[in-house]
């Protein structure tokens, strides 16, 4: 866990909550089934308020519990998959947020959490989609899966700064997909989220190839106006990686 989040959790837990969590970590590390009833109870025991970087107190406390599981590899994957299956959205979010940490501590966990990431990406819960797209997804999703995930975020209006690994993984094909998306929006007379432009701008010729610039000459006033707004925003954007 990010040391910043760990410190924020320690700062924010009340005396009772801290004692409960310390005891819960011991129980979870000693009794293989304890986590199944301790994990759902975290919100009411530790609090659900915001912590830092979009995490809640309960998220961080739950991730601490998962890190204490005395399991590795496939057994660890099986336990957290069941917690996710029986979990409410807040529990599922914490499982997704734990994946990178679990792999850091146990390389044999490797890609075994990927089905949970894919399930979140198939759903419509923007909170879970954002939680799924942390460093673990950036390491393990294949190129197609990663591009589709970014495009889904744009459709669901999830800010792209919540997506890990964009600097390394955004490629020309993703830029092409985003430019085509922008063109489609302009053709509908609609606006485009500003965070797609740095990626499009980083790949010369992609915008031109999308057909968007020609919309500035459209006979339909809405399309023309949307194109002018889009081209202005594009020109004002620094390409990704240039800053």
């Amino acid at each position: 866990m990010d040391p910043h989040i760990r410190a924020a959790l320690d700062r924010q837990l009340t005396g009772d909550a801290r004692r409960w969590l310390v005891d819960a970590v011991v129980r979870v590390s000693q009794d293989l089934t304890a986590v199944r009833t301790v994990f759902p109870a975290v919100g009411r025991r530790c609090g659900r308020g915001p912590l830092a970087a979009g995490w809640t107190v309960a998220d961080a406390a739950r991730v601490r519990l998962l890190a204490a599981l005395p399991l590795r590899g496939a057994e660890l994957a099986e336990e957290i998959t069941a917690l996710h299956r029986y979990g409410e959205p807040a529990e599922q979010r914490a499982v997704l947020r734990s994946l990178a940490l679990l792999e850091d501590a146990d390389p044999s966990f490797a890609g075994l959490g990927l089905p949970l990431v894919r399930e979140a990406l198939r759903g419509n819960d923007t909170d879970l989609i954002a939680a799924a797209l942390g460093p673990y997804a950036a390491r393990h999703l294949d190129q197609d899966g990663y591009r589709q995930a970014v495009l889904k975020c744009v459709f669901c209006e999830i800010p792209l700064d919540r997506v890990a690994g964009l600097d390394e993984r955004a490629d020309r094909e993703l830029a092409r997909m985003l430019a085509d998306f922008a063109h489609e929006r302009v053709a509908a007379g609609r606006d485009i989220p500003a965070d797609v432009w740095p990626i499009v701008r980083a790949h010369a010729g992609v915008l031109e190839a999308s057909g968007l610039p020609a919309e500035a000459d459209s006979p339909v006033p809405d399309r023309r106006a949307a194109a002018v707004r889009a081209l202005t925003a594009y020109s004002a954007t620094a390409p990704a990686g240039a800053s």
Binding site: R36, T37, V38, P40, A41, R44, Y86, E88
Partner: peptide
């Protein structure tokens, strides 16, 4: 056998 997971919910 699965009830304990649910009885822990808020």
């Amino acid at each position: 056998d699965v009830l304990p997971r649910y009885l822990a919910k808020d």
